[in-house]
Simulated scan of single mutants.
Amino acid sequence: MNILIVEDDPIFAQGLQAMLEEMGYHSLGIAQEANEALRLMSATQPDLILMDIHIRGAMDGIEVAEQMKQRSLMIPVIFLTSLQNQETFSRAKQTNPFAYLSKPVEVAQLQRAIELALHKYAHKSSHLNEWANDVAIQNSFFVKAGRRIQKVHIPDIYYLEVDRNYSTIMLKDQPLKVRMTFKELSQKLPGHQFLKINKSYIVNLAKVDNADLEKNEVQVGQYVVPLSKRYRKDLLKALDIG
């Protein structure tokens, strides 16, 4: 279990690390301010975040949690704070944290909070695919990539490579690997725009630049995708060539 600590008090942060070690968890490190916290979240993909509300920088811990939602960083958060006012609690509640603990924190209290947070997150994760389908809109859809829920803009897709239960969505800048079958992906794509040209490849026809029928290759932007003879006629028909 990998846990990231967001805390600007070094003594308290070291105390948290000691507690986590005692409980058998692994600390991925300590972030003392908002930008550092967000960078480490993206880089290390923690299983859980212990977030102090009052931290250094332009954003407090609650605003960091809001940024996480905007960036689709679906990581459970436990807030830690010495602030006792209702306004702070009300703001924190809007980010749907998995727990809210007041400082100082005892080992048993933290242990229970972590166990409950992970239990609640596991239950919530079982419904992520349903949620992703519900929020798909117009020219985009959502996929679960690792611990992230990622929006994919359909016009940005060059091609898809399918390997059993996994698929790679090839975008301009980077590949996006997801646990999805060909059937699951096909349901999210407009059939008139995407064509299967090989048992493992589906291309975005809008991105096709040329096809070499001698080499059995299709140029899709900067990528070259193999063309199966079986699907050659389908490609010619889709490109409106007799």
Rank of each mutant, 00 (worst) to 15 (best):
D134S: 11
G15S: 08
A122D: 15
L20G: 03
E87R: 11
V208F: 01
Q193N: 13
Q70L: 08
D234V: 07
S126F: 09
N165R: 07
Y100G: 04
L20R: 02
S126L: 09
V143E: 10
N210D: 14
L236I: 11
H119T: 15
A238W: 07
Y166L: 02
M19R: 02
P226V: 10
F12W: 03
M19E: 09
F12A: 01
I154M: 03
F79G: 05
N129V: 06
L171R: 03
R147Q: 15
H127W: 05
V6Y: 09
P76Q: 08
V218A: 00
A34D: 15
K188I: 13
L73S: 06
M59Q: 14
M51E: 11
P226H: 14
P190G: 11
L227H: 10
V107T: 15
I55D: 12
Q67E: 14
I53R: 08
L4P: 04
Y223H: 15
V218K: 02
L205I: 06
E130C: 00
P175Y: 10
Q45I: 08
A206F: 04
I241Q: 10
M59I: 04
S42C: 00
I75P: 08
H26A: 11
Q187H: 12
G191T: 14
F98V: 02
I169H: 03
K120M: 01
S90D: 14
F141T: 05
A18F: 10
T181Q: 00
G61P: 06
Q14W: 08
L38I: 13
L205T: 06
K172T: 12
I62D: 07
P76F: 09
L128D: 15
N210F: 13
K233P: 01
L110S: 06
H192C: 01
L101M: 06
L185H: 11
K69E: 13
Q111E: 12
K215S: 06
K229A: 09
D47I: 03
M23E: 12
L48G: 09
R147P: 02
I49A: 09
I149W: 09
R71N: 12
L116F: 13
K188W: 12
I154L: 02
L239R: 14
D8A: 03
N198P: 00
E214D: 09
S82L: 00
I11T: 14
Q86W: 13
V220T: 01
I5P: 07
H127M: 01
A13T: 04
I202L: 08
L28A: 07
L128H: 14
N2V: 06
Q193E: 15
L118E: 10
N216H: 11
K188V: 11
P97I: 03
D8F: 05
I157R: 01
H153S: 10
Q84V: 12
Y159C: 03
A238T: 11
L235H: 10
K93T: 05
N139K: 07
Y121I: 03
V143M: 06
F12P: 00
H153V: 07
E214L: 00
T44C: 01
N2A: 08
V135W: 12
N204G: 02
Q86D: 15
L83R: 11
A108N: 12
L227M: 08
I11R: 11
T44Y: 11
R91D: 13
D209I: 01
D173N: 13
R230K: 10
Q150F: 00
R148M: 00
H119I: 10
L227T: 08
E214Q: 08
L28C: 07
L101V: 04
E66P: 00
L83T: 09
D209T: 03
Q138L: 02
